[in-house]
Design a binder for these strands. Structure first.
Lengths: 273, 273
DNA sequence: TTTCCATTTCCGCAATACGGAAAAACACGA
DNA sequence: TCGTGTTTTTCCGTATTGCGGAAATGGAAA
């Protein structure tokens, strides 16, 4: 009956948006900590503590707990904390649900070898596309996306390849939500312009990212569909604009569209009506 | 009503030799839970609860907390919990630090010490395998590869260990490209003969280079796999034929296969299907 | 050596996470 | 349609567990 007012029991100082459901504080903090560690490449205890706003002793206790499970590793030389194998193992199972990764391997190897450019596979998430695997070439100058990195829908080959086959209103909603940040001079920052671009993509079956994300880098991509004809991922070949010239595009584009088609079939997907 | 036992709420449900350092219970449990979810492909709350031995309400609270961070996802249709994107993102940052050379060091030292022969690590390149690190023994007569030197696929233990787990047509393409130069009388210079040899390697999990590159030198090797089950490197023990006799091979072979398996695990790889 | 700073351990307090139990939501069959 | 059994979700009192200040340890520089 006493203190019928606010809840002294509640979570401590920060945020307290009060709308979030009951959460486990220590777990919340631990995940934030893990995310912080994964963003840097090696952090000392003090850095972790600073980045997470947690007292060193608390951060330390969390790190050692995570360490027992192999979620983080401690590098003696340099006293650095890194993400561990277990985290990778657990995270990798995210892909198992999308059996695409395994099925696309051969196709990607073939593409990369034939054209001597990096082949990438990315899956569609709510607000971004996430690169999940790639096959590299041995060219000294080449594109590289670390698995797990994400790309913007409006300024990536795979993103546009996927958008092109989504219902118009869904495209508009997505764009409204994520915006069209200008990464380079060539980024398409206008909704109407992007829609025109997507129409062309849909018509020919493959998309091109012409230095829209990184200057000097081009990227040719095609969508992969699930059994409902919905685009759920994309295959792309990326490299320096110097090599992916306008002359080779007419060859590359159809080749990638075909390769993506092969993957669509292998996961029992089907092209849209 | 009865069962007024000691402490039902208590934390020490499991063994707990009490020697383990202070850990955060909720985090411990959450990681175990996450690992359980990652092993199955989609679990209902009840399954999670059963697998982790946690009461449903606790498991539920953890799942929703993880969900807020995107560590797990809930699939409405089927009421299934899956590992989420964030877990993938965080886990992927493990790749930045995944240096085979570093992670194999201990295993190699152990091997070299146990058998008193030189242990080598070599990685697969397009046309050759490249020796990147070794642990030497004190024997006066011993094998030695300077780091950076390359070996032929068809006439090296590591090379054959790798070839044995590649797709047949890829093996053929590689051999067609690099040839089968005869280094010694024992070099396998015939495609068919090599393929038979590789079949045996694949069956038992380890390869032997029986003076095929250098007269008097034998080499026992096993492959190391990446997360796609592709052979990307090999571990070998090499020394004079006088010591690596037919009698010790049955011991050495499995030992090296096991050691390579350990390395595969430590880089979050997996054996091929 | 002394000093300074980061890491690791300790420990008492009470805030936090726990889990039983009840309430919703759901799934079938009758 | 209702009833019955199951799973998911919410609630809440309790005391266990996690918290963080502070001290101890360790290591490198001065």
């Amino acid at each position: 009956m006493e203190h019928p007012e606010k809840r002294p029991r509640g979570r401590p100082r920060l945020s307290d948006t009060s709308k979030d459901a009951a959460s486990i504080q220590s777990l919340d903090r631990a995940i934030a900590l893990l995310a912080a560690v994964s963003e840097a490449s090696g952090m000392t205890l003090m850095q972790v503590s600073a980045a997470t706003q947690l007292p060193p002793s608390t951060a330390y206790r969390m790190l050692t707990t995570l360490q027992h499970h192999g979620m983080v590793e401690f590098e003696e030389a340099g006293q650095l904390w890194h993400v561990g194998v277990s985290a990778f193992r657990i995270g990798s199972s995210f892909l198992r649900r999308r059996k695409i990764t395994d099925r696309s391997r051969l196709v990607m190897q073939d593409l990369a070898q034939r054209f001597e450019e990096t082949a990438n596979l990315a899956v569609a998430e709510d607000d971004v596309v996430v690169f999940v695997s790639q096959v590299e070439t041995h060219a000294p100058l080449r594109a590289f996306f670390r698995p797990g990195t994400s790309g913007p829908y409006h300024a990536s080959g795979v993103g546009k390849a996927i958008l092109a086959f989504l219902a118009p209103d869904r495209v508009r909603r997505t764009l409204a939500r994520v915006g069209q940040a200008p990464f380079t001079l060539r980024t398409i920052t206008d909704v109407a312009a992007l829609e025109t671009n997507l129409q062309a993509v849909r018509a020919r079956g493959w998309a091109i990212d012409d230095e829209e994300r990184y200057l000097g880098m081009r990227c040719v991509a095609a969508p992969i569909f699930n059994e409902f004809g919905e685009p759920i991922a994309g295959l792309s070949l990326s490299g320096p604009s110097l090599r992916l010239t306008d002359e080779v595009l007419p060859v590359l584009g159809p080749a990638i569209r075909a390769a993506a088609g092969t993957i669509t079939l292998s996961i029992a997907g089907r092209p849209p009506a």
